[in-house]
Nucleic acid binder design. Structure first.
Length: 430
RNA sequence: GUGAGUGUAGCUCAAUUUGGUUAGAGCACCGGACUGUGGCUCCGGUUGUUGGGGGUUCAAGUCCCCUCACUCACCCCA
Protein backbone atom coordinates (compact mmCIF):
# COMPACT_ATOMS: atom_id res chain seq x y z
CA UNK A 1 0.00 0.00 0.00
CA UNK A 2 2.91 2.34 0.59
CA UNK A 3 4.68 0.96 -2.43
CA UNK A 4 4.81 3.25 -5.40
CA UNK A 5 4.19 0.40 -7.77
CA UNK A 6 1.59 -2.27 -8.05
CA UNK A 7 1.30 -5.30 -10.25
CA UNK A 8 -1.09 -5.05 -13.17
CA UNK A 9 -4.69 -5.90 -12.40
CA UNK A 10 -5.31 -9.61 -12.64
CA UNK A 11 -1.60 -10.42 -12.79
CA UNK A 12 -0.45 -11.79 -9.48
CA UNK A 13 2.88 -12.51 -7.87
CA UNK A 14 3.46 -16.06 -6.75
CA UNK A 15 5.24 -15.58 -3.43
CA UNK A 16 7.71 -17.95 -1.76
CA UNK A 17 4.99 -19.10 0.61
CA UNK A 18 3.16 -20.53 -2.40
CA UNK A 19 5.78 -21.15 -5.04
CA UNK A 20 6.70 -24.56 -3.66
CA UNK A 21 3.11 -25.67 -4.26
CA UNK A 22 3.49 -24.63 -7.87
CA UNK A 23 6.81 -26.40 -8.24
CA UNK A 24 5.41 -29.61 -6.82
CA UNK A 25 2.25 -29.44 -8.91
CA UNK A 26 4.25 -28.81 -12.08
CA UNK A 27 6.44 -31.77 -11.24
CA UNK A 28 3.41 -33.97 -10.68
CA UNK A 29 1.88 -32.83 -13.97
CA UNK A 30 5.02 -33.52 -15.97
CA UNK A 31 5.39 -36.99 -14.49
CA UNK A 32 1.73 -37.74 -15.06
CA UNK A 33 1.85 -36.88 -18.75
CA UNK A 34 5.25 -38.41 -19.30
CA UNK A 35 4.04 -41.74 -17.95
CA UNK A 36 1.25 -41.68 -20.52
CA UNK A 37 3.66 -41.18 -23.42
CA UNK A 38 3.34 -37.42 -23.73
CA UNK A 39 6.28 -35.13 -24.37
CA UNK A 40 6.48 -31.48 -23.43
CA UNK A 41 6.30 -28.73 -26.00
CA UNK A 42 7.12 -25.12 -25.18
CA UNK A 43 5.85 -22.54 -27.59
CA UNK A 44 6.36 -18.77 -27.40
CA UNK A 45 4.03 -16.61 -25.36
CA UNK A 46 3.64 -14.26 -28.33
CA UNK A 47 2.17 -15.29 -31.67
CA UNK A 48 0.82 -13.45 -34.67
CA UNK A 49 -2.70 -12.22 -34.04
CA UNK A 50 -3.90 -14.04 -37.12
CA UNK A 51 -3.13 -17.44 -35.60
CA UNK A 52 -5.73 -17.01 -32.88
CA UNK A 53 -8.27 -15.33 -35.11
CA UNK A 54 -8.14 -18.31 -37.44
CA UNK A 55 -7.70 -20.93 -34.75
CA UNK A 56 -10.18 -19.88 -32.10
CA UNK A 57 -12.56 -18.18 -34.43
CA UNK A 58 -13.93 -14.76 -35.12
CA UNK A 59 -17.09 -14.12 -33.18
CA UNK A 60 -15.85 -15.85 -30.05
CA UNK A 61 -15.49 -13.67 -26.96
CA UNK A 62 -11.84 -14.56 -26.61
CA UNK A 63 -10.96 -13.18 -30.00
CA UNK A 64 -13.44 -10.31 -30.04
CA UNK A 65 -12.71 -8.74 -26.69
CA UNK A 66 -10.28 -10.64 -24.50
CA UNK A 67 -6.96 -10.71 -26.31
CA UNK A 68 -3.90 -8.64 -25.51
CA UNK A 69 -2.95 -7.61 -29.01
CA UNK A 70 -0.64 -4.86 -30.14
CA UNK A 71 1.51 -3.77 -33.00
CA UNK A 72 5.13 -4.88 -32.94
CA UNK A 73 7.92 -2.49 -33.91
CA UNK A 74 7.88 -3.80 -37.47
CA UNK A 75 4.17 -3.17 -37.79
CA UNK A 76 2.97 -6.77 -37.39
CA UNK A 77 0.01 -7.42 -35.10
CA UNK A 78 1.02 -9.82 -32.33
CA UNK A 79 -0.91 -11.29 -29.43
CA UNK A 80 -0.21 -12.70 -25.99
CA UNK A 81 -1.58 -16.22 -26.24
CA UNK A 82 -5.03 -16.64 -24.70
CA UNK A 83 -4.85 -20.44 -24.86
CA UNK A 84 -2.45 -23.18 -25.89
CA UNK A 85 -3.94 -25.33 -28.59
CA UNK A 86 -3.56 -22.96 -31.53
CA UNK A 87 0.15 -22.53 -30.82
CA UNK A 88 0.73 -26.26 -30.47
CA UNK A 89 -1.00 -27.02 -33.74
CA UNK A 90 0.98 -24.22 -35.37
CA UNK A 91 4.26 -25.67 -34.09
CA UNK A 92 3.34 -29.22 -35.09
CA UNK A 93 2.49 -28.21 -38.62
CA UNK A 94 5.36 -25.74 -38.93
CA UNK A 95 7.91 -28.42 -38.01
CA UNK A 96 5.99 -31.21 -39.66
CA UNK A 97 6.23 -33.27 -36.50
CA UNK A 98 3.54 -35.76 -37.43
CA UNK A 99 5.39 -36.91 -40.53
CA UNK A 100 8.92 -36.50 -39.25
CA UNK A 101 8.83 -38.22 -35.93
CA UNK A 102 5.38 -39.64 -35.57
CA UNK A 103 4.82 -37.82 -32.33
CA UNK A 104 1.23 -38.11 -31.33
CA UNK A 105 1.11 -36.89 -27.77
CA UNK A 106 2.15 -33.46 -26.55
CA UNK A 107 1.60 -31.51 -23.36
CA UNK A 108 2.33 -27.93 -22.39
CA UNK A 109 2.40 -25.81 -19.30
CA UNK A 110 2.53 -22.06 -18.95
CA UNK A 111 0.97 -18.62 -18.68
CA UNK A 112 -2.00 -17.52 -20.78
CA UNK A 113 -3.48 -14.05 -21.05
CA UNK A 114 -7.03 -12.80 -21.36
CA UNK A 115 -8.32 -9.32 -20.72
CA UNK A 116 -11.24 -10.05 -18.40
CA UNK A 117 -12.55 -8.72 -15.13
CA UNK A 118 -10.80 -10.81 -12.46
CA UNK A 119 -12.83 -12.88 -10.05
CA UNK A 120 -12.48 -16.17 -8.22
CA UNK A 121 -10.68 -18.66 -10.43
CA UNK A 122 -10.12 -16.09 -13.15
CA UNK A 123 -7.11 -13.89 -13.75
CA UNK A 124 -5.69 -11.89 -16.64
CA UNK A 125 -2.46 -13.80 -16.49
CA UNK A 126 -3.34 -17.33 -15.56
CA UNK A 127 -1.68 -20.67 -16.07
CA UNK A 128 -2.81 -23.68 -17.99
CA UNK A 129 -1.56 -27.15 -18.62
CA UNK A 130 -2.83 -28.95 -21.65
CA UNK A 131 -2.58 -32.27 -23.45
CA UNK A 132 -3.12 -32.94 -27.11
CA UNK A 133 -3.30 -36.22 -29.04
CA UNK A 134 -2.86 -36.04 -32.79
CA UNK A 135 -3.62 -38.40 -35.63
CA UNK A 136 -6.12 -40.76 -34.02
CA UNK A 137 -9.82 -40.45 -34.74
CA UNK A 138 -10.90 -43.49 -32.73
CA UNK A 139 -13.30 -42.69 -29.92
CA UNK A 140 -11.42 -44.82 -27.44
CA UNK A 141 -8.69 -42.18 -27.44
CA UNK A 142 -11.24 -39.63 -26.32
CA UNK A 143 -11.97 -41.88 -23.39
CA UNK A 144 -8.31 -42.28 -22.55
CA UNK A 145 -7.72 -38.55 -22.64
CA UNK A 146 -10.61 -37.88 -20.31
CA UNK A 147 -9.32 -40.59 -18.02
CA UNK A 148 -5.97 -38.81 -18.03
CA UNK A 149 -7.78 -35.79 -16.68
CA UNK A 150 -9.68 -37.56 -13.93
CA UNK A 151 -6.71 -39.63 -12.83
CA UNK A 152 -4.68 -36.44 -12.62
CA UNK A 153 -7.24 -34.89 -10.30
CA UNK A 154 -7.16 -37.95 -8.09
CA UNK A 155 -3.36 -37.76 -7.93
CA UNK A 156 -3.50 -34.19 -6.73
CA UNK A 157 -5.80 -35.21 -3.92
CA UNK A 158 -9.18 -34.22 -5.34
CA UNK A 159 -11.76 -36.71 -4.13
CA UNK A 160 -13.84 -38.65 -6.62
CA UNK A 161 -16.98 -37.37 -4.96
CA UNK A 162 -15.86 -33.78 -5.55
CA UNK A 163 -15.96 -33.74 -9.34
CA UNK A 164 -18.18 -34.76 -12.21
CA UNK A 165 -17.30 -35.51 -15.81
CA UNK A 166 -19.71 -34.14 -18.35
CA UNK A 167 -19.60 -35.18 -21.99
CA UNK A 168 -21.44 -34.39 -25.15
CA UNK A 169 -20.99 -34.67 -28.90
CA UNK A 170 -21.47 -31.82 -31.31
CA UNK A 171 -21.09 -34.03 -34.35
CA UNK A 172 -19.24 -33.18 -37.50
CA UNK A 173 -19.86 -30.08 -39.53
CA UNK A 174 -22.87 -31.47 -41.35
CA UNK A 175 -24.53 -32.75 -38.14
CA UNK A 176 -23.88 -29.40 -36.62
CA UNK A 177 -25.44 -27.53 -39.49
CA UNK A 178 -28.68 -29.54 -39.31
CA UNK A 179 -28.81 -29.20 -35.57
CA UNK A 180 -28.25 -25.52 -35.68
CA UNK A 181 -31.17 -24.98 -38.03
CA UNK A 182 -33.47 -27.04 -35.86
CA UNK A 183 -32.34 -25.24 -32.70
CA UNK A 184 -32.86 -21.81 -34.18
CA UNK A 185 -36.34 -22.83 -35.25
CA UNK A 186 -37.11 -24.00 -31.75
CA UNK A 187 -35.72 -20.90 -30.10
CA UNK A 188 -37.69 -18.60 -32.35
CA UNK A 189 -40.91 -20.15 -31.05
CA UNK A 190 -40.11 -18.90 -27.54
CA UNK A 191 -38.23 -15.85 -28.62
CA UNK A 192 -40.22 -13.43 -26.47
CA UNK A 193 -39.41 -15.20 -23.22
CA UNK A 194 -35.65 -15.44 -23.73
CA UNK A 195 -33.34 -13.01 -21.98
CA UNK A 196 -31.83 -10.19 -24.02
CA UNK A 197 -28.49 -11.93 -24.31
CA UNK A 198 -30.13 -15.05 -25.66
CA UNK A 199 -32.19 -13.13 -28.18
CA UNK A 200 -28.91 -11.85 -29.54
CA UNK A 201 -27.27 -15.28 -29.30
CA UNK A 202 -30.08 -16.93 -31.24
CA UNK A 203 -28.77 -15.02 -34.21
CA UNK A 204 -25.03 -14.85 -33.58
CA UNK A 205 -24.28 -18.13 -31.82
CA UNK A 206 -27.41 -20.17 -31.06
CA UNK A 207 -25.57 -23.04 -29.34
CA UNK A 208 -24.57 -20.67 -26.59
CA UNK A 209 -28.18 -20.22 -25.53
CA UNK A 210 -27.95 -23.73 -24.14
CA UNK A 211 -25.61 -22.78 -21.31
CA UNK A 212 -27.25 -19.52 -20.32
CA UNK A 213 -27.62 -19.28 -16.55
CA UNK A 214 -30.94 -17.45 -16.67
CA UNK A 215 -33.66 -19.65 -15.13
CA UNK A 216 -36.26 -18.82 -17.74
CA UNK A 217 -33.90 -19.60 -20.60
CA UNK A 218 -32.89 -22.80 -18.86
CA UNK A 219 -36.46 -24.02 -18.60
CA UNK A 220 -37.06 -23.22 -22.24
CA UNK A 221 -33.97 -25.05 -23.47
CA UNK A 222 -34.92 -27.97 -21.23
CA UNK A 223 -37.13 -29.15 -24.07
CA UNK A 224 -34.94 -28.00 -26.95
CA UNK A 225 -33.59 -30.37 -29.59
CA UNK A 226 -30.41 -32.15 -28.51
CA UNK A 227 -27.19 -32.40 -30.50
CA UNK A 228 -27.10 -36.15 -30.02
CA UNK A 229 -30.36 -36.56 -31.93
CA UNK A 230 -28.79 -34.97 -34.97
CA UNK A 231 -25.62 -37.03 -35.20
CA UNK A 232 -24.93 -38.87 -38.44
CA UNK A 233 -24.25 -42.61 -38.26
CA UNK A 234 -20.48 -42.13 -38.05
CA UNK A 235 -20.63 -39.47 -35.37
CA UNK A 236 -23.16 -41.44 -33.41
CA UNK A 237 -20.96 -44.55 -33.53
CA UNK A 238 -18.00 -42.44 -32.48
CA UNK A 239 -19.83 -41.14 -29.43
CA UNK A 240 -20.69 -44.74 -28.55
CA UNK A 241 -16.99 -45.60 -28.67
CA UNK A 242 -16.20 -42.71 -26.36
CA UNK A 243 -18.72 -43.89 -23.81
CA UNK A 244 -17.65 -47.51 -23.81
CA UNK A 245 -14.03 -46.40 -23.60
CA UNK A 246 -14.84 -44.33 -20.53
CA UNK A 247 -16.47 -47.35 -19.00
CA UNK A 248 -13.33 -49.39 -19.62
CA UNK A 249 -11.22 -46.75 -17.90
CA UNK A 250 -13.61 -46.70 -14.99
CA UNK A 251 -14.60 -43.09 -15.49
CA UNK A 252 -18.11 -42.17 -14.47
CA UNK A 253 -19.55 -39.56 -16.78
CA UNK A 254 -22.85 -38.00 -17.53
CA UNK A 255 -24.12 -36.69 -20.83
CA UNK A 256 -24.86 -32.98 -20.72
CA UNK A 257 -26.79 -31.71 -23.70
CA UNK A 258 -25.96 -28.15 -22.79
CA UNK A 259 -22.22 -28.70 -23.08
CA UNK A 260 -21.36 -26.84 -26.27
CA UNK A 261 -18.15 -25.00 -25.36
CA UNK A 262 -17.10 -21.58 -26.55
CA UNK A 263 -14.33 -22.16 -29.03
CA UNK A 264 -15.11 -22.61 -32.70
CA UNK A 265 -12.78 -25.46 -33.44
CA UNK A 266 -14.53 -28.18 -31.50
CA UNK A 267 -16.26 -31.04 -33.28
CA UNK A 268 -17.70 -34.33 -32.06
CA UNK A 269 -16.63 -34.93 -28.46
CA UNK A 270 -16.66 -32.15 -25.91
CA UNK A 271 -16.16 -32.62 -22.19
CA UNK A 272 -15.70 -30.79 -18.93
CA UNK A 273 -14.60 -31.82 -15.50
CA UNK A 274 -16.37 -29.71 -12.92
CA UNK A 275 -15.65 -29.35 -9.24
CA UNK A 276 -18.82 -29.64 -7.20
CA UNK A 277 -17.57 -29.02 -3.67
CA UNK A 278 -17.94 -25.25 -3.90
CA UNK A 279 -14.22 -24.51 -3.52
CA UNK A 280 -14.07 -22.83 -6.92
CA UNK A 281 -17.07 -20.57 -6.65
CA UNK A 282 -18.76 -19.80 -9.90
CA UNK A 283 -15.86 -20.84 -12.13
CA UNK A 284 -16.00 -24.53 -11.33
CA UNK A 285 -14.57 -26.06 -14.49
CA UNK A 286 -11.05 -27.27 -13.80
CA UNK A 287 -10.36 -29.21 -17.00
CA UNK A 288 -12.15 -28.92 -20.31
CA UNK A 289 -11.57 -29.88 -23.89
CA UNK A 290 -12.75 -31.72 -26.90
CA UNK A 291 -12.05 -32.97 -30.36
CA UNK A 292 -10.98 -30.55 -33.07
CA UNK A 293 -10.68 -32.59 -36.22
CA UNK A 294 -11.04 -29.61 -38.50
CA UNK A 295 -8.35 -27.37 -37.10
CA UNK A 296 -5.49 -28.97 -39.01
CA UNK A 297 -7.41 -28.71 -42.21
CA UNK A 298 -7.74 -24.99 -41.62
CA UNK A 299 -4.02 -24.70 -41.00
CA UNK A 300 -2.55 -26.97 -43.66
CA UNK A 301 -5.21 -28.43 -45.87
CA UNK A 302 -4.25 -31.87 -44.62
CA UNK A 303 -6.58 -33.97 -42.49
CA UNK A 304 -5.50 -34.87 -39.01
CA UNK A 305 -7.86 -35.86 -36.27
CA UNK A 306 -6.97 -34.31 -32.94
CA UNK A 307 -8.27 -34.06 -29.41
CA UNK A 308 -7.07 -32.21 -26.37
CA UNK A 309 -7.89 -30.54 -23.12
CA UNK A 310 -6.69 -27.65 -21.03
CA UNK A 311 -6.71 -27.28 -17.28
CA UNK A 312 -6.40 -24.24 -15.04
CA UNK A 313 -3.46 -24.44 -12.67
CA UNK A 314 -4.76 -21.79 -10.27
CA UNK A 315 -8.08 -23.58 -10.16
CA UNK A 316 -6.41 -26.92 -9.61
CA UNK A 317 -4.34 -25.49 -6.78
CA UNK A 318 -7.54 -24.26 -5.15
CA UNK A 319 -8.90 -27.79 -4.90
CA UNK A 320 -5.76 -29.92 -4.68
CA UNK A 321 -4.68 -31.49 -1.42
CA UNK A 322 -2.17 -29.10 0.10
CA UNK A 323 -0.58 -31.97 2.02
CA UNK A 324 0.19 -33.75 -1.26
CA UNK A 325 1.85 -30.67 -2.74
CA UNK A 326 3.56 -29.59 0.47
CA UNK A 327 7.34 -29.49 0.57
CA UNK A 328 8.79 -32.74 1.79
CA UNK A 329 12.02 -33.49 3.61
CA UNK A 330 12.72 -30.00 4.74
CA UNK A 331 16.14 -30.02 6.29
CA UNK A 332 18.41 -27.10 6.86
CA UNK A 333 21.00 -25.85 9.27
CA UNK A 334 21.87 -22.41 10.54
CA UNK A 335 25.44 -21.23 10.79
CA UNK A 336 25.61 -18.91 13.76
CA UNK A 337 28.53 -16.80 14.78
CA UNK A 338 29.40 -13.89 17.00
CA UNK A 339 29.78 -10.66 15.16
CA UNK A 340 33.12 -10.36 13.42
CA UNK A 341 34.25 -13.94 13.93
CA UNK A 342 33.70 -15.24 10.43
CA UNK A 343 36.87 -16.31 8.72
CA UNK A 344 37.73 -17.64 5.32
CA UNK A 345 37.76 -21.21 6.63
CA UNK A 346 34.20 -20.79 7.88
CA UNK A 347 33.03 -19.78 4.46
CA UNK A 348 34.82 -22.77 2.96
CA UNK A 349 33.09 -25.07 5.42
CA UNK A 350 29.72 -23.55 4.63
CA UNK A 351 30.44 -24.22 0.98
CA UNK A 352 31.21 -27.84 1.78
CA UNK A 353 27.92 -28.25 3.61
CA UNK A 354 26.00 -26.90 0.67
CA UNK A 355 27.90 -29.05 -1.81
CA UNK A 356 26.96 -32.05 0.31
CA UNK A 357 23.32 -31.20 -0.23
CA UNK A 358 22.69 -29.61 3.14
CA UNK A 359 20.76 -26.36 2.98
CA UNK A 360 22.78 -23.92 5.04
CA UNK A 361 21.76 -20.48 6.12
CA UNK A 362 24.33 -18.04 7.43
CA UNK A 363 23.16 -15.38 9.83
CA UNK A 364 25.45 -12.43 9.13
CA UNK A 365 23.32 -9.92 11.02
CA UNK A 366 24.70 -7.90 13.89
CA UNK A 367 22.07 -9.16 16.26
CA UNK A 368 22.57 -11.05 19.49
CA UNK A 369 23.27 -14.75 19.77
CA UNK A 370 19.83 -15.13 21.22
CA UNK A 371 18.20 -13.47 18.28
CA UNK A 372 20.11 -15.67 15.87
CA UNK A 373 18.92 -18.78 17.63
CA UNK A 374 15.43 -17.46 17.57
CA UNK A 375 15.62 -17.06 13.85
CA UNK A 376 17.09 -20.53 13.43
CA UNK A 377 14.10 -21.84 15.29
CA UNK A 378 11.70 -19.82 13.25
CA UNK A 379 12.95 -21.05 9.92
CA UNK A 380 12.83 -24.58 11.34
CA UNK A 381 16.53 -25.34 11.15
CA UNK A 382 17.39 -28.81 12.33
CA UNK A 383 20.91 -27.94 13.44
CA UNK A 384 22.91 -24.92 14.45
CA UNK A 385 26.64 -24.76 13.82
CA UNK A 386 28.02 -22.31 16.37
CA UNK A 387 31.15 -20.26 16.20
CA UNK A 388 31.96 -17.96 19.10
CA UNK A 389 35.08 -16.94 20.96
CA UNK A 390 35.55 -20.37 22.58
CA UNK A 391 35.27 -22.15 19.26
CA UNK A 392 37.62 -19.72 17.59
CA UNK A 393 40.29 -20.15 20.26
CA UNK A 394 39.83 -23.90 20.42
CA UNK A 395 39.70 -24.44 16.67
CA UNK A 396 36.41 -26.35 16.61
CA UNK A 397 32.71 -25.77 16.10
CA UNK A 398 29.83 -26.50 18.40
CA UNK A 399 27.04 -28.49 16.80
CA UNK A 400 23.61 -28.24 18.32
CA UNK A 401 20.66 -30.43 17.41
CA UNK A 402 17.71 -28.09 17.54
CA UNK A 403 15.23 -30.88 17.11
CA UNK A 404 16.02 -32.49 20.45
CA UNK A 405 14.43 -31.44 23.68
CA UNK A 406 16.25 -29.23 26.14
CA UNK A 407 17.50 -31.95 28.49
CA UNK A 408 18.83 -34.36 25.88
CA UNK A 409 22.47 -35.30 26.46
CA UNK A 410 23.27 -35.53 22.77
CA UNK A 411 22.00 -32.08 22.17
CA UNK A 412 25.20 -30.07 21.90
CA UNK A 413 28.85 -30.98 21.52
CA UNK A 414 32.18 -29.97 20.05
CA UNK A 415 33.09 -31.08 16.57
CA UNK A 416 36.03 -30.59 14.21
CA UNK A 417 35.46 -28.89 10.90
CA UNK A 418 36.39 -31.93 8.83
CA UNK A 419 33.79 -34.10 10.59
CA UNK A 420 30.98 -31.61 10.20
CA UNK A 421 29.42 -32.83 6.95
CA UNK A 422 29.50 -36.51 7.86
CA UNK A 423 28.14 -35.93 11.32
CA UNK A 424 25.20 -33.92 10.07
CA UNK A 425 24.42 -36.39 7.30
CA UNK A 426 24.58 -39.21 9.84
CA UNK A 427 22.19 -37.46 12.18
CA UNK A 428 19.92 -36.23 9.44
CA UNK A 429 17.99 -39.47 9.44
CA UNK A 430 17.74 -39.83 13.21
C1' G B 1 -18.46 -3.65 -20.31
C1' U B 2 -22.63 -4.30 -16.09
C1' G B 3 -23.97 -5.01 -10.84
C1' A B 4 -23.06 -5.69 -5.56
C1' G B 5 -19.79 -5.70 -1.38
C1' U B 6 -15.27 -4.37 1.29
C1' G B 7 -11.00 -0.89 2.36
C1' U B 8 -8.42 0.62 10.07
C1' A B 9 -0.68 -1.55 12.26
C1' G B 10 3.38 -6.42 8.42
C1' C B 11 -1.20 -10.18 9.06
C1' U B 12 -6.34 -11.21 11.26
C1' C B 13 -9.83 -8.05 13.18
C1' A B 14 -12.09 -4.29 17.24
C1' A B 15 -13.65 0.82 18.11
C1' U B 16 -20.09 0.81 22.40
C1' U B 17 -27.88 0.65 18.66
C1' U B 18 -27.90 7.08 16.77
C1' G B 19 -20.81 11.11 14.96
C1' G B 20 -17.75 12.81 20.92
C1' U B 21 -11.50 13.68 23.76
C1' U B 22 -4.95 10.47 22.90
C1' A B 23 -7.96 4.73 17.12
C1' G B 24 -7.26 -0.64 20.33
C1' A B 25 -6.37 -6.24 20.71
C1' G B 26 -4.21 -10.91 19.13
C1' C B 27 -0.34 -12.73 16.09
C1' A B 28 4.31 -11.07 14.17
C1' C B 29 8.65 -8.03 15.07
C1' C B 30 12.50 -5.82 18.66
C1' G B 31 14.52 -5.84 23.67
C1' G B 32 14.83 -7.74 28.72
C1' A B 33 14.23 -11.59 32.78
C1' C B 34 18.54 -15.69 31.02
C1' U B 35 26.04 -10.86 30.88
C1' G B 36 27.36 -17.21 24.43
C1' U B 37 21.94 -20.55 23.20
C1' G B 38 15.84 -21.22 20.19
C1' G B 39 11.10 -23.69 21.61
C1' C B 40 7.48 -22.66 27.30
C1' U B 41 6.44 -18.45 30.54
C1' C B 42 6.52 -13.38 32.21
C1' C B 43 7.70 -8.03 31.50
C1' G B 44 8.49 -3.90 28.34
C1' G B 45 8.72 -1.52 23.44
C1' U B 46 7.80 -0.19 18.01
C1' U B 47 4.07 -0.04 14.29
C1' G B 48 -1.14 3.75 11.50
C1' U B 49 -1.69 10.11 6.36
C1' U B 50 -8.28 4.83 9.35
C1' G B 51 -7.03 3.68 0.60
C1' G B 52 -6.93 8.99 -1.59
C1' G B 53 -9.56 13.80 -2.32
C1' G B 54 -13.49 17.02 -1.20
C1' G B 55 -17.95 18.25 1.74
C1' U B 56 -21.46 18.54 6.20
C1' U B 57 -20.41 19.59 11.55
C1' C B 58 -18.19 22.81 17.40
C1' A B 59 -16.44 17.65 16.42
C1' A B 60 -15.80 12.42 11.16
C1' G B 61 -12.69 5.81 11.26
C1' U B 62 -18.14 6.63 11.77
C1' C B 63 -22.60 10.78 7.65
C1' C B 64 -22.63 12.66 2.09
C1' C B 65 -20.15 13.10 -2.86
C1' C B 66 -16.07 11.85 -6.09
C1' U B 67 -11.98 8.74 -7.03
C1' C B 68 -8.71 4.48 -6.59
C1' A B 69 -7.86 -0.52 -5.19
C1' C B 70 -9.46 -5.30 -3.96
C1' U B 71 -13.32 -9.11 -3.71
C1' C B 72 -17.58 -11.59 -5.53
C1' A B 73 -21.21 -12.17 -9.32
C1' C B 74 -22.95 -11.33 -14.64
C1' C B 75 -20.90 -11.74 -19.65
C1' C B 76 -17.47 -15.52 -21.01
C1' C B 77 -14.13 -19.14 -19.84
C1' A B 78 -9.30 -23.07 -17.62
Amino acid sequence: MDSRFRSIKGMNDILPSDSFLWINLEKLLREHFFMAGFREIRTPVLEYLELFVRGIGEGTDIVDKEMYSFRDKDGEMITLRPEGTASVVRAVTEHNLLKQEGIHRLFYLGPMFRYERPQKGRLRQFHQFGAEIFGIADGSIDGELIYLGTSLLLKTGVKESDFVVKINSLGCQSCRKNYRESLVGFLNQSKESLCDDCKRRTVTNPLRVLDCKNEVCKSITEKSPKTLDFLCTECSAHFGEVQSSLKCFGVKSEVDHRLVRGLDYYSRTTFEIQIINNLLGSQNTVIAGGRYDSLFRDFTGGDYPAIGFAGGIERLLEVAGKDILAAKDEFRISFISSVGLFEETDLRNIGKLREAGIETEVDLSKRSFKAKFKRADRIKSSFAVIKGDDEKNGGYYTLKDLRLSMNSEEKQFRINADELVNEILKRRKV
